[in-house]
Nucleic acid binder design. Structure first.
Lengths: 148, 148
DNA sequence: AACGAAATTGAAAATCATTTTCAATATATA
DNA sequence: TATATATTGAAAATGATTTTCAATTTCGTT
């Protein structure tokens, strides 16, 4: 399973003159089996549920490789913790983030994309990357907090 | 000058049972005379150009007071450095950020706001705050880098 | 004008996510 | 299989920000 992702990672490793190792494979698997928006700590905990241990340092380093080869994108919300989301075969999106339960909803909007294009042209700005993050309360949390 | 801002700060200080001090006034002045998007370090340097010195700690603490009383908003781009922008009499906006020269252009867009409202309703999400940051190269940097 | 309770200051230490260092270990090519 | 090179992970370093705490300042009250 996840053959395509493994292959991409393997080829990247090879093309960079790096080596395939057990810790790297363990971390890649943990990431591939994770849901979106996992932090380095999340991966560290997932990977170390079993007998053999992997250090924090290796998790950070390997997540960088996984990002560099295009399987993940690092996103930084404003709690100062880097999180990783899957990118293979997914289209670019933005986030609705619940500040109470930390649930993340992804969204895209053609209208917004068009407005952004116009804005870039008007300001003669060359896009590198962008983030649109909307923080608030999700439906479930709104109900629990009593905001109807 | 900046009477209104000073008054707002003074009243906030009083209403919270805090005290007016020289360091606080010096920091407030530095912020009021600064352009937008200054970091704590920027303020620290501005405030300490003269004879009497103010510590880093006090700058951080006072910038928090200035934010709490509504004169500033703390914004966090993704370089991990908190910056402060003026809020009095300014309307909410988003940012185009040049990754080369760090120039910041503010923008607003009715189209995007409307799209956001629709999105919030559709996801039954209650907005707390949001950020739309577009990173890239400004016109000047594009030319210097040779991207026509 | 001085008193004293309460707030403030700032230097140094603590925090916290992440990165670097470096000696010991593992990989893969010849 | 040897050997050069990459990897690992514990511990120390980093860098922005926060906390601690003893010394100092403020301000309402004498």
């Amino acid at each position: 399973m996840r053959t395509e992702e493994r292959q991409i990672f393997g080829e990247y490793i090879k093309s960079e003159g790096l080596k395939e190792t057990a810790p790297r494979n363990r971390i890649l698997n943990a990431f591939l089996n994770s849901e979106d928006h996992v932090s380095a700590e999340d991966i560290y905990l997932l990977v170390n549920r079993g007998k053999r241990k992997v250090g924090f340092t290796t998790v950070y380093r390997t997540m960088k490789l996984i990002s560099d080869c295009g399987l993940a994108r690092e996103v930084m919300f404003d709690d100062g913790i880097a999180r990783f989301e899957h990118t293979l075969g997914r289209k670019h999106h933005h986030h609705l983030i619940c500040t109470r339960c930390r649930k993340v909803i992804e969204f895209t909007s053609k209208t917004m994309e068009d407005a952004e294009q116009a804005l870039l042209k008007k300001n003669e700005f060359e896009l590198q990357y962008h983030k649109y993050e909307i923080f608030g309360l999700c439906k479930a949390c709104r109900e629990q907090v009593g905001h109807k």
